[in-house]
Every structure is written in C-alpha cells, then in structure tokens.
Design a binder for these strands. Structure first.
Lengths: 246, 246
DNA sequence: CAATTTTCATTTGTCAGACAATTAAATGTA
DNA sequence: TACATTTAATTGTCTGACAAATGAAAATTG
C-alpha cells in the first residue's frame, strides 16, 4: 500500500483510499486487523493524527471498526445489510431533498421498483409478512393519527411488502427508494377520505399476496401510484394558487 | 447542536452525528458554511483534532466539503447524483462480496429491477441511449476481448438501458445493483458461443427499445436473466466436480 | 496446585500547541 | 485605475503528551 506524494495533497484522503482499495480488492480480508495507528503512521510516513483522520473516514463508511485496548486496533468490518440500509437511506434522502427531485419522479421510481417485487412477493410471502402488512394497514385506519405517523406506517407497510420478495439484495436496494419518499410524503395532508382509499388499497395488496396473485398486486400498485401522484398534484396546485393570490 | 457527554464516548462520532442531524433536518442548508474548526472545538468543548475527525467522517459521506484559505472552511455539500452513485456502488459491491450473496440472488435482484425499467425505457429512450447500447453490443462481439472487458462492457450496456428509463432516481438505485454484479460475473468464463448468444440478446433488447416495445423488452430480459444464471450454474457445478475429484 | 487479584504493556481516544500552505481581502504603489 | 504586496483567516500536518480501555502476564492467596 503506497500513496502518491505528488497527488493533490490531503494525505488522509489518500491513505483512506489506499486502505479502501486494499479492502475492496480483497487484499485485506474481513476481520483482519490493520497495523496499529503508530505503525501505519510510520509506513505512510505521516503523523498519527493524519492516520486517524483516514481511519475515521473508513469508519464512517462502515469499512472498518476500531477497538481499544491491548489486543485492539482497527479491523476490516463485515458490512452488514443493516449498516448498508442505514447508509443507503441517508444518501437517498439527502439526494432527493438537495436536488429538487420532483414528487412525480421519486414516486415513479419507487412504484416502478416496487412493482418489480410483486411477482416474487406473491410467490414467497410468509404469514409474518402478511401479518405486518395487515397490522400497519390497521394502524393507518386509526382516527386521530397524525399525518406524519400515517406516513411512517405507510413506509413500514411498503417495506414489509418489499421484504416479502424474500431477496435481501432487493430489500437493500429498495430501502432507499421507499424511505427517501417519506419527507416528500410528509408534505401531503391526508384527508380522512384519502386515508380510507389508501388503506383499502393496502388491504387489497395484502389480499393479493395472500392468494399469490402477483398480477393483481401489480395492478393495485399501479392504482396506488397514480392516486398518490394525484394527491401530491393537488397539494402542488393548491400552493401555486395560494402564491398567485398573494 | 449539543452532544451527550454521558453517551458511550467517542466524541468525534457524537459531533459528526450532531452535525449530520442538523444537515438532514434542514437546520444547515446547502452551501452554508459551518463554523471554523477552532469555533466548533470551542462550541463542543473538545480539541481541534477531535473536531477534525468528525469533519472527516462527514466528508467521507460527501455531506460536507472543505476549502482552505481565508474564506475557506467546511460547507454543507450538495450531494450530487454522481457522488451518490459512487457511494452506492462501493457499498453494494462490498455488501455482496462480504456476505456470501449467491450469484442467483444477486442476479434475480438485478433483473427484477431492470425489468421494472423496461416500460419506461421503451417509452423514453433517446437515439443516444440506443447508440450507446449498440456500441457496447458491438464491442462485446469483438474477438480477443478479455472476459473482464466483456463484463465491463456488459455493465455499460445495462447502465445505458437503465438510463434510458429517463428517471435519475431509478438510475441511482440501480447503479448499485448493476455494478455490484461485475465481480460476480467476472467468475464466469464466457465462451465464444455464450458471448454470441448474449450479444444477440443485447441486440434484441436494443431493437425492442427502438420500436418502443416494452413487452418484448421484458421478455428478452427474462431470457437473458435465465441464460446468465445457467452460465453461472455451470461454473458452480464444474467447480464442485473439480473439488470432489481432488 | 488452582483461583483470584494485581500489574503491565499495548492500543485507541483526546488534548495542547505549533507551524506550513493556501486563499481572498486589504493595503500599498505606479 | 490597475497591479503588486501584505495580511489575516483557515485548513492541513506534525510533535509530544496523557487518559482510558483491555487483554495477557505475573503475583498473590487459599
């Protein structure tokens, strides 16, 4: 592992890159211990704080973990699906909020990807998935629920649906798409009437999974997608009108 | 912004979390300048190296960027799709390689999600997308191409296909699924015969997009999916046999 | 001898202070 | 005014130190 002293400085970034490359290429294996900070400092010919900055960068990406004490040190971390979910959700959420991604575009992405799960979910759903989905749908029908709580439950429902496809890679990829929608959904004020319709569709989706009917599931998801878009469009129109009358 | 001195130490992690929360909640806006390292150190009542470790963590997630000089400092970074692609690909690739995700599972995820793009891509593909796809398919038919180069071109083809859906959120989500497959695909030795078949299917996919035929596209993708799985299965079987004869 | 306690060496976490490098603004100069 | 110089602010890096955690070795005790 070497660093290029010519390169556009920022030694800690270069060191982080060198170690990251070693991990990604398999030169450093999972649970393998890195040299101590003092040793790394000597190897790279930099000071300990600089090495530490590099290690913190890698820690932020869950590539390593550190442990204090005699047998401690930095270890190559086995990236868990849970870790990856978290990063994916953070990144997706910020990506949408910082780039003025329209509700329509985000919604289209989410439902296009969710519909891809329909056939697999219909085939593989377990009783657990169905129970979770029914529980969330029931929660959503409770009166007095805040819009935010309604959205949170909506996310939980859809995540259960995605998980029903029984493919962890799909669950991981879609975690971002589903969760990142929540801030956008929170713009919407859900009337009792619209909640009723959404809960009904959620019920139908669960029924379709229960009877292993992927085709029906797909159709209902499409309906839910266009209804969600309609609600958002109403909000956008109302705001545009409010602006023009001001 | 405050940190909990009681919490399970690691001050720099706590500080990073405090700032990250401020960014995600919108308390810190894009391009807003954070206080200088010295000021942050005073605010959080820690030393400057500790603050710096926290900032490096945030930098690793592309949440901030830093600039030297008189008017420099740390600024809230607008997370670009490009930045997000990079992180997504890194995370997805490691996730698959570190968790013994089978080829079948990864492949299923990839094609399920890609098939979700088919109707949109068929509708919105531009001449550019078609040209890129044909160019990659042509490259794949060149004799003397290494397996690795063949896989890289395969990835480029599929990314162009995904981009043809014209939804940046979908492109972002699928970047991980498509790119992370490459190391797995690299296990496979592609015979001239199998390359020929794959190139033919790639041509058919491009044709289907050109005629705006999403249904045909979906069908061909399904065929490509099962063929890819078949190739992988052959490799796995061959290796199992090799092991048993040793 | 076995079990427990103590000591110790190693390693990460944190701090203080210093200097170098960079950069834009302020200042001086023709 | 236009250009060169100085200056102040800020991040990047280094040195050296001590605190805290932790497992292993050594000492103690029954």
């Amino acid at each position: 592992m070497k660093i290029d002293p010519d390169s556009s400085s920022d030694l800690s970034a270069q060191i982080a890159k060198a170690i990251r490359d070693a991990i990604m290429s398999g030169k450093l294996m999972v649970d393998e211990r890195l040299p101590s900070e003092a040793e790394l400092a000597e190897q790279f010919n930099v000071s300990r704080p600089t090495v530490r900055e590099a290690l913190k960068r890698l820690g932020a990406q869950s590539l390593i973990r550190t442990q204090r004490g005699a047998t401690g040190g930095a270890f190559v971390n086995r990236l868990t699906f849970e870790d990856a979910y978290g990063q994916q959700i953070t990144t997706s959420t910020l990506l949408l909020s910082m780039n003025d991604v329209s509700f329509a575009v985000a919604c289209e992405a989410r439902y296009a990807l969710e519909r891809a799960c329909a056939p697999l979910a219909a085939q593989r759903r377990t009783a657990d998935h169905l129970a979770t989905m029914r529980a969330e749908a029931h929660r959503q029908s409770q009166p007095g629920l805040t819009d935010e709580a309604f959205c949170a439950s909506d996310v939980a429902f859809h995540r259960a649906f995605v998980d029903a496809a029984g493919n962890p890679v799909i669950s991981y990829q879609l975690a971002g798409a589903v969760e990142a929608m929540q801030p956008l959904m929170n713009m919407i004020t859900f009337s009792a009437r619209s909640r009723e319709k959404i809960v009904a569709l959620h019920g139908q989706i669960t029924d379709a999974l229960e009877t292993h009917d992927g085709q029906a599931c797909d159709t209902i998801l499409a309906e839910l997608s266009s209804y969600t878009n309609e609600l958002a469009q109403n909000v956008i129109n109302a705001r545009a009108q409010a602006r023009s009358t001001n």
